[in-house]
Design a protein around this nucleic acid. Structure first.
Lengths: 192, 192, 192, 192
DNA sequence: TATGAATGAGCCTTCATTCAT
DNA sequence: TATGAATGAAGGCTCATTCAT
């Protein structure tokens, strides 16, 4: 009988929230504006979300999940390790440049104390497959014998930096540019 | 004849503002709280700063200048290029880890539209010496033949990433850790 | 589907604003107090008015329109000119004494730079019918051959002065007093 | 030994206060701005005046006294009554047009509750000579047999109105204009 | 006496949230 | 469930007054 919650509204609310929260920050984000841009009444947000903090947390988890899926795209655990590393790095890089707003948001809130328990858990788990892969590669002597989190930092640091620098601009990398960038990243961690 | 403006107040206001703005964001930063923590009355802030935006801009320039000085510390333009690069990178890395709050703040506002003209100019100029150095190294065939901004991204990306991950935690790197990290960074850009 | 805007609130806000603005002046008028006296929350004012300046402008136009209607009450453009003048003057006088607060407010803000374009236009237009009537009377030789704005000043000056002096007191003029006062006003402008 | 209060500063403070209080109202008047325009430090005002209210009261009395002197200029209690009335009216009119700012200020605060006892007393006394003169003229059958305050209202109302309308503009009345205006005023009260 | 930095109460306005419809 | 008017707490900034110099 009663109308049911409308998933399309949630998406529109997510979009509107994301569009603004990076420009204004959490405290500057206006619920009324999010509502207006999503085409719903102010009060309606509270049917879908517990409040501002909940909206941001749900948005975080929504985007984080998208990003994790993007990175694991076509991943084959049976493939050679170097190939797996390259695929994951390339996925990460493409995603960082292709969805800079989403990635900027995730980085911004990753370590903020706005995130609730559930969001934090998701974040923590997101590193696991990468760390596991690098541990294998270490044992295989393919990469340097350094802590995996350090090497991860250098792998994704360059990608994040380029995304950060190009934030707001149109970036149009060719396949060969990606290949070159990967060589930089790989040059950093590969066993010498 | 009257009380004279007290520069120490400015420093205390800077400290208090920095301490809070990263936790709360610009919109969440409360002038009254900054004042209270700096040990002055609310209104006193406005004797030293034009308002919230001006406080943040002056803070940005203050910290950016500190960072630029830290990076150029002991820099010798006559030294061998590889040595110069290593010194600058090491300075950058030490600073990123040693003053994570300051660096986080700078990165946060670097591309925000809160920065005024003067602040933007400072930011723009900050890259010049590094780019110039890398151009020389490229011509000397010491590093890859890639755009200097791309290589810069991979140089500082790892450092930023580690600082970002370790934000809020106590990081205690040994000299040899720094050396190892530099090898990662240098491995990324060095001519193969 | 939601609560609907309540025009009665506007009236209550007008009343409260008028009650205070003459005592305190514009800068001294407190929005919170206006709201409290109107029986609404502070923020509610901003549902109906753009802010303090807008509240005062809308109040001005509201009262000015009331006053204009009061003056033109029962005006008959076909009636003899002297009769028209007498009617308008009497209406003006009755209104000045009967609604001294309203009239004081209008005079106070009439030439202030708080008035926006729309309010100024209203003010400007309000003189037109009186000036037109006096011009006709001049051509008919009924009144002195002097500029109509000068004569208008003497017509309404006495009325305003009495209202001004009696401001805050209870004035209870009899019909014959009004008649006598009109004789003073008419004595000033009538052709000798 | 100690320097003594400087009368020139008082004048400059009066001037600055008068210049602003009409534009902004009492609550909008800024002590710091008055001080700056008078060329003294903010705190110095408090050497000369007890505070904002005292500044305005002293200013009122200062200006009121100036005005009373201007009106009584060349007054000769032995002269014929009609001549005395004409002189006082003319003085009043010239003063209203010649010092519109001063007169506007006086009118504005005349009935405000900002005035202290001393100021109120001065105001009350200022009417006495005019009322006495009109009483004599009434007894002599020169003017209408109406209350003197009513007739006073019509005498000065026109003058005030013209000053009010011309407020802020340059008014340049010729001698003959003044004569004509007096005829209007006299026409109102003279015995018919 | 003069200065102007310092104080902090106070006010306009905003906006997350609630609730009558 | 959807709406948007209503609420009122909170924050940036101002400014009369004080006071150290």
């Amino acid at each position: 009988m009663a109308r049911v919650k409308d998933p399309a509204k949630i998406d529109r609310l997510f979009e509107a929230a994301l569009r603004h929260v990076l420009e204004t920050g959490y405290a500057g984000l206006k619920m009324a504006e999010v509502a207006r841009e999503a085409g719903v009444a102010t009060g309606t947000i509270y049917t879908y979300f517990g409040g501002k903090a909940d909206l941001i947390n749900q948005l975080y988890r929504h985007l984080k999940q998208q990003k994790m899926e993007a990175i694991m795209q076509e991943h084959d655990p049976e493939a050679p390790l170097t190939q797996q590393i390259k695929l994951l790095w390339t996925n990460y890089f493409r995603d960082a440049l292709g969805a800079p707003v989403r990635n900027h948001f995730i980085r911004q809130y990753e370590y903020s104390d706005l995130l609730d328990e559930e969001s934090r858990k998701l974040h923590k788990n997101s590193y696991k497959p990468v760390y596991a892969l690098l541990e294998k590669a270490k044992r295989a002597g393919l990469i340097r014998q350094l802590p995996v989190d350090t090497m991860t930092a250098f792998l994704i640091g360059g990608a994040n930096e380029i995304a950060h620098q190009g934030f707001g601009q149109q970036i149009d990398l060719q396949e060969q540019d990606i290949e070159r960038c990967y060589q930089l990243a790989w040059g950093a961690i590969k066993q010498v």
